[in-house]
């Protein structure tokens, strides 16, 4: 009887540890340093598209043209750099990557699609020094609804950088 209880306790403890590890990994795989909005909340107000027309090369340290489309019926405002951050998925975590692109010092305004269908075009220059193998990167943009700084909205797109 005592042995059975001991085994049960050990089993429960083992299962708890396993589930804890899994939760930790899941959290790490979604955490984006410096980004206040969760991944689950992204891509609802607006989306980022890897513009197929502009023929992005997806090469490291090359121009990457991204189309931003508003899915909501409200105007979205971005900071001067579109709130754009680039992350590389490495060691089960997202790590910040340099964006070489400079941006004009003004807020960027994304009107609702039915008002201005072209949306916005943001250009990025992802740079991973010494990149030897293709890398999975996540490009995130964060803004807010016009006249409501607290209503933060975000979107991301995953791209393989060569």
């Amino acid at each position: 009887m005592y042995a059975k209880t001991k085994i049960s306790v050990l089993l429960v403890t083992f299962l708890f540890l396993i589930s804890s590890c899994s939760t930790k990994n899941d959290r790490n795989s979604n955490d984006l340093p410096g980004i206040t909005i969760s991944v689950e909340e992204m891509n609802t107000a607006f989306v980022i598209e890897d513009d197929p027309i502009t023929a992005n090369s997806h090469e490291n340290n090359k121009r990457l043209s991204l189309v931003i489309r508003n899915l909501s019926d409200k105007t979205i405002v971005f900071p001067s750099d579109y709130g754009l951050r680039i992350f590389e998925f490495q060691d089960q975590m997202w790590n910040i990557v340099q964006n070489r692109m400079g941006y004009a010092e003004s807020e960027k305004v994304l009107l609702p699609y039915d008002v201005f269908p072209p949306g916005l075009t943001a250009v990025a220059y992802p740079n991973i020094p010494g990149l030897l193998e293709p890398a999975r990167i996540r490009i995130v943009m964060v803004g807010h609804y016009e006249n409501s700084d607290s209503e933060v909205v975000g979107a991301y797109i995953d791209i393989t950088l060569k």
Partner: peptide, 8 residues
């Protein structure tokens, strides 16, 4: 700075 940049 030699960095690419986007204008308005």
């Amino acid at each position: 700075p030699n960095e690419p940049y986007q204008v308005i």
